[in-house]
Amino acid sequence: MWNNIYNWLDERVGFNDLYANLLDRPEPKTSWWNTLGSASMFLFVLQGLTGIFLTVYYTPSPDHAYDSVQYIMEGVAFGWLIRGIHHWGATLMVLVVFIHMLRVFFTASFKYPRELTWLIGIGLLLTTLGMGFTGYLLPWNQKAFWATTVGTQIAGTVPFIGEFTLKALRGGPDLSALTLQRFFSAHIWMIPGILAALIGVHLFLIMKHGESHWPKKDD
C-alpha cells in the first residue's frame, strides 16, 4: 500500500528530480565556516516558530503588553522557554548573520558570479537588524521604551526627511500606543515578509552558482 501511495505521489511530484536538483548536487570541498548561512536560516525559522507561539499570548497595547509578557514568563507552561529561545535567538541571529558576512568577505566569495547574492545578503543583514530594533520595543519595559525613544530620535536627526521618518516610526511626535502597534506589525508581518522573500532569492542564487570554493594561491 505504501508503495502505491509513493508511486502516486512520485508521478505528480517527481521525487527523483527533486533529489537530483536539490540534494545530489556536487559542491567544492566546504568547511565549518560554510555552515553559518544555513545556521542563519535555521535561526530565522526558529524565531518564526517561537514568535508565532508568543503572539498567542502577547497583546500589543501599552496597557497590556508588559503584563502579557509577564504572564508568558510566569503563567504559561514553558512560556519562559519559548520566550528565552526567542530572546537569545535574536542575539545569536545577529551574531551569526554578521560572522557569515565576514566569512563571505574574507574569502572574497562575493566576486563574480555572486555579486547579486552579496547585495541580497546585505539586505538580509539590514532586515535582521530591523527585526532586532522593532522586537526590542515589544516587551514595553523601561529599557525597551527609552532605547526606542532614543533610537527613533536618531532617525529624526537625518536632514530633510528626519522629521517625517521620526513621525512615521512613532506614529506621531511621541512614543505611544501607535508606535507599539506599528512596531508589532513591522516585527511580525512586514519585515519577516521581506526577510523571507530575500532568503528565497538568496537561496535560489546559491543553488544556481553553487557554494564558492575556499580561495587558493592562484585565485
Binding site: 540534494l23 545530489d24 556536487p26 567544492p28 570541498k29 555552515t35 553553487g210
Partner: peptide, 22 residues
C-alpha cells in the same frame, strides 16, 4: 567541484550539526 563533495550528505551533515548545536 569535480574534486569536491556532494551536498547530500556531506555538506548538509555539517549544516545540521551546526543548527542542532545552536
Amino acid at each position: 567541484v569535480s574534486k569536491g563533495e556532494k551536498f547530500w550528505p556531506d555538506t548538509i551533515y555539517r549544516d545540521l550539526v551546526m543548527s542542532l548545536g545552536i
